[in-house]
């Protein structure tokens, strides 16, 4: 089964990359020319990329009998998929395609990074049950949504800087409005926070079932609580307008630095049992 699945997966990986690259091309052309046709093309190719990517993940999941999280290849690929999916949801919800050109490079970079790492030979992992799979998937979705809010906030800061300094190049006329960027960023944080909360709940239930206690004092647990707090703070501060605008966007960028710290430093060097997420 796995021998058959691998060549198939390679084709799917190639198709995914081609679709994502095409989608990026469509979004960039849309930004440069403002022709709707290019924007639609970007969306359609993104959907096809997501479908191929999903099938590639499915192949891998089937051979591992769970969500692919037990190696860098699988977990990064899952992250890229959820990032693209969250962006698509946001694009459809807010009916705005102008940030696609900035999100797709991240999707492509993460997906390519995943492919460049050696995939572990998929072996059925010890029966961990659906709780752990849900815990990981929802947490990765949370981080993907935070990554998206980071991109949106960064664009906000750049555009706000240009508008305030009255140095308008050609690109300002193509970006979404500041208020739209902020709305999109907030929705993204709400999605991230909700999925992270539910994901953590599943994780706590799972760890309690295995070890009989909820809290283990793992550095990953501590940094995750901090991340939850700073994003909740972002939403809470955003309720009062005095924190809206550039300050909120700067906070969102800072919060994501914490996420990256949790992702890169805590997982790899400090945590005892969180390997990739």
């Amino acid at each position: 089964m796995s021998r058959l699945a691998f060549p198939m997966r390679n084709h799917l990986v190639l198709l995914t990359i081609v679709s994502y690259a095409g989608s990026l091309g469509g979004y960039v052309a849309f930004l440069a020319t403002a022709r709707r046709l290019f924007g639609r093309l970007g969306t359609l190719l993104l959907i096809s990329g997501l479908a191929c990517h999903y099938l590639a993940l499915l192949e891998r999941s089937r051979s591992a009998h769970t969500v692919p999280y037990d190696d860098l290849n699988g977990s990064l690929s899952l992250f890229a998929w959820l990032l693209a999916a969250t962006y698509l949801g946001l694009e459809l919800f807010h009916r705005d395609r102008s940030v696609g050109a900035f999100v797709l490079p991240f999707v492509i970079a993460v997906f390519s990074l995943a492919q460049s790492t050696q995939a572990a030979v998929p072996a059925p992992s010890p029966a961990q049950g659906p709780l752990l799979a849900l815990h990981i998937t929802l947490n990765v979705l949370g981080y993907a949504a935070f990554a998206l809010s980071f991109v949106l906030s960064a664009i906000y800061l750049v555009q706000n800087g240009l508008l305030r300094s009255r140095r308008l190049g050609s690109i300002v006329w193509r970006f979404p409005a500041l208020e739209s960027l902020e709305r999109m960023s907030r929705s993204s944080v709400i999605v991230g926070l909700a999925s992270l909360l539910v994901g953590i709940t599943f994780g706590l239930l799972w760890v309690n079932r295995i070890w009989g206690r909820y809290w283990n004092g793992d550095p990953k647990e501590i940094i995750t609580v901090v991340i939850l707090a700073v994003y909740a703070g972002y939403l809470w501060l955003g309720r009062t307008r005095s924190w809206r605008g550039a300050r909120a966007s700067a906070l969102c960028v800072f919060n994501f630095v914490l996420v990256l710290f949790s992702y890169c430093v805590v997982n790899l060097y400090l945590s005892n049992f969180h390997r990739f997420f």
Partner: peptide, 22 residues
């Protein structure tokens, strides 16, 4: 892009408002 971007002072002002408020 011959027709994009505002060409009068008044229209440029309104377009700026749209860049901020949508």
């Amino acid at each position: 892009q011959i027709s994009t971007r505002p060409m009068s002072v008044a229209f440029a002002g309104v377009k700026l408002a749209e860049r901020i408020f949508g």
